[in-house]
C-alpha cells in the first residue's frame, strides 16, 4: 500500500470534517427539540388540570387587573 492510500485526500478530509459538524449539529438540535417538547407537553398537561370559574375573564389584561384606584394618574 502506498502512502497515497493511507493519507486522506483534501476532499476526503473536508467531507469527514463536514460530517462531524453535521452530526454534532443534529445531536444538539435533537436534544433541544426533545427538551422543549417535554417541557411544553408538561406545561400543557398541568395547565389543563387547573380549574377556574367559568365567568372569570380570560386574563389578557394583566395591568388592567392590577391597577388599583389611586395607583393610576392621567
Amino acid at each position: 500500500m502506498t502512502d497515497r492510500g493511507m493519507v486522506p485526500t483534501r476532499e476526503q478530509a473536508y467531507v469527514a470534517l463536514r460530517s462531524d459538524v453535521v452530526r454534532a449539529w443534529g445531536e444538539a438540535r435533537a436534544k433541544a427539540v426533545e427538551a422543549t417538547l417535554r417541557k411544553t407537553a408538561d406545561a400543557i398537561w398541568k395547565l389543563s388540570t387547573l380549574e377556574f370559574e367559568e365567568a372569570e375573564k380570560p386574563g389578557f389584561f394583566l395591568n388592567d387587573a392590577a391597577r388599583p384606584d389611586g395607583k393610576v394618574s392621567e
Partner: peptide, 25 residues
C-alpha cells in the same frame, strides 16, 4: 426548537396560562 414547538401549542393552553397569571397576580 422554541419557535417550532411554540407554533403548535393549543390556544386553550395559552388562554389558560393567561388566566393563571392574572389570578396569581
Amino acid at each position: 426548537s422554541r419557535v417550532e414547538v411554540g407554533a403548535v401549542i393549543p390556544a386553550s393552553a395559552y388562554v389558560q396560562a393567561q388566566r393563571v397569571r392574572r389570578r396569581f397576580r
